[in-house]
């Protein structure tokens, strides 16, 4: 269980594309809702600082990197899937919200798993 210490988040974007802007918006929204007062966001535009891509091994855009708490977690995409983002960041949730989200999460996970299985059987065939 993560301690309620600072979350250091770094969001890598490339210019002002739609995906990048969406990711920034989503991230700000989640942090305000779930991590109020305990986070810091750094937005790095790789078009202006390409050398920084090497440090965190960034390939996909947008990529969100949770540097603190350790271990480093990377989440790629425009962050539209809230449950996945929160699970990925390992954020402790408020109780009522948590239950709701937990159900939603379990459903979506089950669907994904089913999809993967059918994919595998298709490929094996």
């Amino acid at each position: 269980m993560p301690k309620n210490s600072e979350y250091e988040l770094r969001l890598y974007v490339a210019g002002n594309t739609a995906k990048s802007m969406l990711a920034v918006k989503n991230l700000k929204h989640y942090c305000e809702e779930h991590l109020k007062g305990k986070y810091s966001i750094e937005v790095i535009d790789l078009l202006e600082n390409p050398a920084l891509a090497e440090g965190d091994q960034i390939l996909a855009i947008p990529t969100l990197v949770r540097r603190v708490p350790a271990p480093i977690r990377k989440i790629i995409g425009d962050l539209s899937n809230e449950e996945k983002v929160l699970v990925g960041l390992d954020i402790k949730l408020k109780d009522n919200l948590r239950d709701n989200l937990k159900d939603k999460l379990e459903d979506s996970l089950r669907d994904e798993h089913k999809a993967k299985l059918t994919d595998q059987t298709k490929r094996a065939a």
Binding site: A14, K19, A53, L59, A60, I61, T63, I76, G77
Partner: peptide, 13 residues
């Protein structure tokens, strides 16, 4: 290390 959440591209590469 990676979780995929939504649309992305490989612009970083």
């Amino acid at each position: 290390e990676i979780a995929e959440t939504g649309e992305y591209d490989l612009e970083g590469l």
